[in-house]
Design a protein around this nucleic acid. Sequence first.
DNA 1: TAGATGCAAATGATATGATCTTTGAGTGGA
DNA 2: TCCACTCAAAGATCATATCATTTGCATCTA
Lengths: 255, 255
Amino acid sequence: MEPSSPEVAAASPLPAESGLHARVLDHLGTAICGGELPPGSVLNIDELVERYAVSRSVVREVLRVLASIGFIEARRRVGVLIRPASAWNVFDPQVIRWRLASAGRMAQLRSITELRTAVEPHAAFLAASRIGRDEASDLVGLAAKMWAAGEAGDEERFLHLDIEFHRRVLLASGNEMFVRLQELVAEVLTGRHKHHLMPHHPHEQALQMHADVAQAIQRRDGERARQAMVQLMEQAFDEMKSLWEQTGGPEHGTG
Amino acid sequence: MEPSSPEVAAASPLPAESGLHARVLDHLGTAICGGELPPGSVLNIDELVERYAVSRSVVREVLRVLASIGFIEARRRVGVLIRPASAWNVFDPQVIRWRLASAGRMAQLRSITELRTAVEPHAAFLAASRIGRDEASDLVGLAAKMWAAGEAGDEERFLHLDIEFHRRVLLASGNEMFVRLQELVAEVLTGRHKHHLMPHHPHEQALQMHADVAQAIQRRDGERARQAMVQLMEQAFDEMKSLWEQTGGPEHGTG
DNA sequence: TAGATGCAAATGATATGATCTTTGAGTGGA
DNA sequence: TCCACTCAAAGATCATATCATTTGCATCTA
């Protein structure tokens, strides 16, 4: 897998952050996303100090971070108040991860898939006018490899190539915010894979569409690139939709 | 201005957060976004304690928050390292605010405008199938008021109605992530207004397009709603583009 | 001389306990 | 009934101390 730009890779999911801070933060974040600690619940610092057997420093630092992503609100004389989901920074990668690990997983997948449906076609459109020659070639090559992996039934490899493909397109869009969405896309794709929510044989159509996107971008045909990506997204969305039915609805929980 | 859902309003920009924590956080955040403290710079806690004349607790809590949005990375024996912009959580409202206040303002406006261009049409499309009867009526009414304010040349009022209009559409999309983008849209629109980057008389066309969007959504014609919103976005984008030329380029700074 | 090894200083991480400040709630008077 | 006052609870801030880890350098060995 030719890493033409190694410094941009390494989307570190900071998995084994081993400090006390990370441990407590993760635990509380999970609890809030998971619905234990529903909005309106009140915590207090000393209680947390006891519960986690850590010092005030650690607890306060964790609370500051949770406050910065809208999970809590500290009120004097009252305690630490859990805020409703509508206040959360739903774009924070940490939050996404917690939500994907919670019962609201399907709702989160739906949200992100809709976001992708909106953003990726436009990203493809922009990429067509902004991508460099070499990057374009790489993209076409990547699509070819996806085709090969798909035909060979190599799911693992297909997944990685798929993620890489969408990453490159978002990167080539030249929009820093789109680039940042790449992490979300990766979370979604790996999440789908982990939970066996993907067709075991990628559809022949999907393979062709990836190739179409790459080719259109290389030929600087923004409109065609957008169209091809729209189709790709529609298919992804349909697969997602069929999943809700399998797993018993999207557990809406939007607000 | 009929507040049919007062509890959702009040997009508190937390302006006068008066604690020590907020003061130091804001100062450091601004410095990092502003390019003082370029990537690779090293700070250390004691130095910050002295510089801001606050205790270690305050500094550490601030650093934790900065770390959580990707601005810094603490390394033992080294100090606090400033991370490159590519690591930032560019969707964090706080970050957006800092960047809009910095020299990279135009680059930020461009990014968000492109994001809007991608998202809002799809939001309009989704809204057409998900909006409630009353909300749809409100939306049409809002467009009518915009027309009135535009004709009357009441910029202030037009701005507020414009923000409210887009907020309602994003809200009606039923996607929590789209809803969250509303803050960004509001920042952009108010930013444009503050810096006198808007045409003094809203274009007649824009007024009509807002009305078209509202009507299409009410009639549940998703495709037409999308098209109308696309046109609106194209116009917004063109205005933005003409601004870059005025103010001497977008100060690219994307990566 | 080159490379491995070990020590110690630097610096963040955590702990602890005290003091300051804000604010909700209760209390009492008009 | 309502307003003003008081008090105490809880977070906010501070100061200091100890622990843990990493890096640079000196030392040692082949």
